[in-house]
Amino acid sequence: MTGVNDLRMRQWQLRTPLSEEDIGRLQIGDIVFLDGCLFTGREGFYHRLFDLGEAPPVDLPTISNVTFHCSPAVNETSPGVYHIPAVSATASFRFDKYLPLLFEQHGVRAVIGKGGMQPEVYQEVFRKYKAVYLTTVGYGLGAMYGRGIQKVKEVYWKDELGLAQAVWVLEVEKFGPFLVECDPSGQSLFALANEEINQTFEGLYTELPQPKLKRLGEVTSPGKEVL
C-alpha cells in the first residue's frame, strides 16, 4: 500500500479554466501552480447563493472553474482600485454542503482552500464531478500567495458582505504552490496521513486515564477524526 512518503509530488503549472484532461492527470501529493483567473467565496457568498437563493453577481463559468476559500488582505489604493499583497485560505470543511450545487449549477471543478474536507464528500461529490481539492501549503503563506496575484479584476458584493467576505475575481500567475489533497478518483491526502499517524499516536494514550469529569462532545477515541 502507498504511504505519504511514496507519493510522487510531481509539479504542474496549469491554466484556468482547468481542462478535464489537466484535472485527470492530478494525483494526491502533486504540487500545482495556476495561471489565469479564479474567484473567491466563503460564508457570505454561499449563504446568499444557496441559502437565500440569490443569483450570483456574475455568471461564474465565464470567470473560471476554480474557486478559492479565503479572504485577502486588501488596500484600496484609489477609489475602486484594489491591491492585494497577501492572501491566505480559510478552512473549507464549513462549506462542504454547498459544493454539489456549486459543481452542478456553476461548473466549478477545482476548490482551493485550507484543510480539505471529509473523505465521504470526496467520494460522493468530487469523484462524481471529476473535481479536485487543492490545499494551500502551510497554511499562512500570505506573502507567497499574494505574489501570485497579478490584478484584482473585479469585486462583487463588497458593500453587502464587507472586504473579508466579498467575492474577489483575481488574475493570477504562477499562483501557488498548492498540494493536491483530493484527486478526481476521490482519494484524500489527509485521510492517508491520518491512517499512518494513528498507528503511532493512539499508542501514546495507553497509560493515560480518562478525565474524572466527562463531557458531551468530547473526543473519546484519539484515532477518530472529529470535523
Binding site: 499583497p85 501549503v137 505574489r147
Partner: peptide
C-alpha cells in the same frame, strides 16, 4: 512532504520581509 512544506514556510518568511507584505493574510 513535511519538509517541502517547512521549506515553503521559511521562504514565505523571507518574501514577506523582502517585499514588505503581510506574511499571512
Amino acid at each position: 512532504i513535511s519538509k517541502y512544506v517547512l521549506g515553503q514556510i521559511l521562504e514565505n518568511y523571507r518574501i514577506a520581509v523582502d517585499e514588505q507584505r503581510p506574511m499571512c493574510a
